[in-house]
Design a protein around this nucleic acid. Structure first.
Lengths: 255, 255
DNA sequence: AACGGCCCAATGGTCCAACCAATTGACTTG
DNA sequence: CAAGTCAATTGGTTGGACCATTGGGCCGTT
């Protein structure tokens, strides 16, 4: 065969036609793998769909089927695709679990609106309040007291004491419920509350009267939890979060 | 050539001579990869040393060099060996650093128990299912379909297709609800589901029948969401998560 | 019309026999 | 002895062949 002609030509084809990122000399299968991987990430091959047959891919890319197979095996090992004989190669995931820690800073993250956030909190925290009332230990109650004490020192809703105390109070409730998964959820949601976007929003829409109101509402929640009254705790928490939501709405209307 | 004789004989050779762990029918390269990987772990191939040439390995194992190459590529992708043309294949590490970055493995993280996690999911996802039924767009439905398609290919609950499809399905539902906060919550919870602790637990306690059951339950959820029936979606989701929880409980009782 | 079994095209899996390309070290040569 | 040359070694790629599994269509039975 025209090997001495076919092969170099084939590689050039891949390199030029498809603009492989950069280096990765030799190791054709790596070029092919990263190429297909990129297309998957870019959505040109939708998750759940089937890749073209190996034979077709080989022809399209101008390489041998063997090289395509090696590339697919690499993708399979890295978890991007699923290969099943007689059927085909299916795309499993576009974003390959990529991300280590920094991952949470996705661009798609910051788009949680304050209203959405409060609605989610309302749904979850009514539950955590109930759980806390049933399962709280003395240590939990002490933590809640401390959080209240911190917040009591705040002189405005923009004071760090206010937000810190608020966060600690709600996280402590989740923690008191005894379910670490809820604790994680609340802690994560509060990461957003503490973000600049949300903070600005909150400071803008919430009047100074919120300071005492929050204190009173928190107090009612605490009492219900301390009394072990799940129903009262639910109700108190719901009232509290609805009040905050109302404060937001009112602020929006006025502006 | 004597293919109709050579191939089966070759496979038997590998299977018998070297006692491949267990399953993994077909996918010869996987058998070879795990075999070599085990030898590396066991120290038979010292870290830093060179593997025998591909051609030798092929002859020793009674398989083709192609299959050996595919196996080596798999090992290279998973980071166990380094392949250099004209030089050889060098062993990089014996213990493959089990799992990516242990990064998130904070002390306080891993303590979410599977039961707790499922209870939290039950509380939140019943809501997201309802929201999804009310707000889902065509794109959302398409995402759900794709997730179902992925999972439909799983041949066991331990297959990557199963978990990936499962995760995508539930995250897609949260996303369809239109509240990004819920999406964040579900995605975060699923990070734990994908952790080794939970995975092992799940594989241990869930029988193979879960495969079809999950598919059927997911289908019911999907239908309800597609129909825009919030009540049915809630119910279907609750049934599904309760079923999983039951599978856990049953597994715990039996063991 | 619905069900069930059979057949076959499609698709991945494996093998082989070459040849190309990079590396390395031995050998030759100045 | 230094530098260049050459050949063996080793991975990289190819095309072609054949096998095993899968899935859907076709057809006969019920």
């Amino acid at each position: 065969m025209a090997n001495s002609e076919t092969r170099p030509a084939a590689r050039d084809k891949v390199t030029r036609q498809l603009r492989l990122p950069q280096v990765e000399p030799g190791r054709l299968y790596r070029q092919i793998a990263s190429l297909i991987g990129e297309r998957i990430d870019r959505g040109q091959f939708p998750v759940g769909s089937l890749l073209p047959p190996e034979r077709d891919l080989a022809q399209q890319l101008g390489v041998s089927r063997t090289s395509v197979r090696e590339a697919l095996i690499a993708l399979e090992v890295s978890g991007k695709v699923s290969i099943r004989v007689g059927h085909g190669v299916q795309i499993l995931q576009a974003t390959p679990r990529s991300d280590r820690v920094g991952a949470r800073a996705d661009p798609g993250e910051a788009d949680i609106g304050p209203i959405q956030l409060m609605q989610a909190r309302r749904h979850v925290e009514v539950k955590t309040a109930e759980l806390a009332a049933r399962n709280r230990s003395k240590l939990d109650l002490e933590r809640l007291r401390q959080a209240l004490a911190v917040q009591a020192r705040a002189r405005s809703v923009s004071a760090p004491e206010y937000r810190n105390g608020d966060r600690d109070f709600h996280v402590a409730i989740a923690r008191a419920g005894g379910n670490a998964a809820f604790t994680l959820i609340i802690a994560d949601l509060w990461d957003y509350v503490c973000k600049p976007t949300f903070s600005k929003f909150e400071e803008l829409l919430m009047g100074p009267e919120r300071l005492q109101m929050t204190a009173a509402e928190h107090r009612r929640i605490f009492d219900a939890i301390a009394a072990g009254d799940g129903v009262a705790a639910r109700k108190a928490m719901r009232n509290h979060l609805d009040a905050v939501l109302h404060a937001f709405s009112r602020g929006l209307d006025e502006n």
